[in-house]
């Protein structure tokens, strides 16, 4: 495909178009994709706050149960439940956007540009291979974790040094020859000017390397966050049961063990998220 792309480099570029993009549309699409991924990371951050707050309300509820403050207990359990719903709602939004972008695990992994970016662009020549264009961008934006996991030399370099936009193999100048080992390594050492070149070549040379790792990332991402979400659901069941019992006035200073134990479980769900969040959203 880079052969068709070579042609683009001889065109005159509009003033706002960075040299490594073919067209303004591609630049916009890349920027939007980057922003969306950044936002999805933000959603992870929001969810962390939501879950931490729910731990606070849960702990408060345990204290209320111990002190026999029925009204506060009911309120706190309801709030905890509401935060749990909010957490799952945000999770749903995240999953939905991944779904729409085809960022599904394993054999269902079939990335496409997000619809809002892709609109009306399908016919443009040279852009038929969305997978290749988007993926380096995914890595380059670094929102999810594939960058450290990717053994392909290209990915970390891209993440570190080309923050503005995803690279496009079609932006490849005619110079470097795919498959030439020395040309794969040198540009990284040369510093930024060479990077756009350096990080692109291996993609042409080994097109499968990067998608594979992204694919693994999403396999792990969905398994881990999905299992966590199942535990959230179980916790919601427990809290709903506690709510019902506290409305009945079952708990007081002499009997609050169920609230205490339900609270412990809920904190565990929270704690696991505290590990998942940096692992899945923050590590570059």
């Amino acid at each position: 495909m880079s052969h068709t792309a070579d042609a683009h480099d001889h065109h005159a570029h509009p003033p706002n178009l960075a040299h490594h993009f073919d067209t303004p549309e591609q630049q916009v699409a890349s920027g939007k994709l980057g922003m969306w991924i950044y936002l999805s990371k933000e959603l992870g951050g929001v969810n962390t706050v939501v879950l931490l707050t729910s731990s606070l309300t849960m702990a408060w509820g345990v204290r209320a149960a111990q002190l026999g403050q029925k009204k506060i207990l009911v309120w706190m359990l309801s709030l905890t439940l509401a935060f749990a719903v909010m957490f799952l709602g945000i999770k749903f939004v995240e999953y939905k956007s991944k779904w729409e972008e085809g960022l599904l695990p394993g054999k269902r992994f079939h990335p496409t540009a997000p619809p809002h970016v892709n609109d009306g662009k399908g016919a443009e020549p040279g852009h038929h291979d969305l997978q290749e264009r988007v993926l380096p961008g995914m890595v380059g934006r670094g929102a999810p974790a594939p960058a450290p996991a990717a053994p392909a030399p290209a990915a970390p370099v891209a993440a570190a040094a080309v923050p503005a936009a995803p690279a496009d193999p079609s932006a490849l100048p005619p110079g470097p020859k795919p498959g030439d080992e020395s040309s794969l390594i040198k540009p990284a050492a040369d510093g930024p000017p060479g990077l756009a070149v350096g990080e692109v070549v291996p993609l042409g040379a080994d097109r499968n390397a990067v998608p594979k790792n992204v694919q693994i990332f999403f396999g792990i991402y969905f398994m881990m966050t999905g299992l966590h979400a199942l535990h959230v659901l179980a916790g919601m069941g427990v809290i709903a049961w506690l709510l019902k019992r506290s409305l009945r006035g079952d708990f007081g200073p002499s009997y609050f063990a169920p609230v205490d134990l339900g609270g412990l479980y809920w904190h565990l769900v929270d704690l696991i998220w505290i590990f998942l969040f940096p692992l899945m959203y923050l590590i570059h």
């Binding site: 695990p105 394993g106 054999k107 269902r108 694919q215 693994i216 396999g219």
Partner: peptide, 21 residues
């Protein structure tokens, strides 16, 4: 076991090299 089931049922590529596993 869950990962194995997920791989068989959903095609999640944890162990299958073709899917990056």
């Amino acid at each position: 076991m869950l990962l194995l089931i997920a791989e068989r049922a959903l095609g999640i590529g944890i162990f299958d090299p073709a899917l990056g596993g």
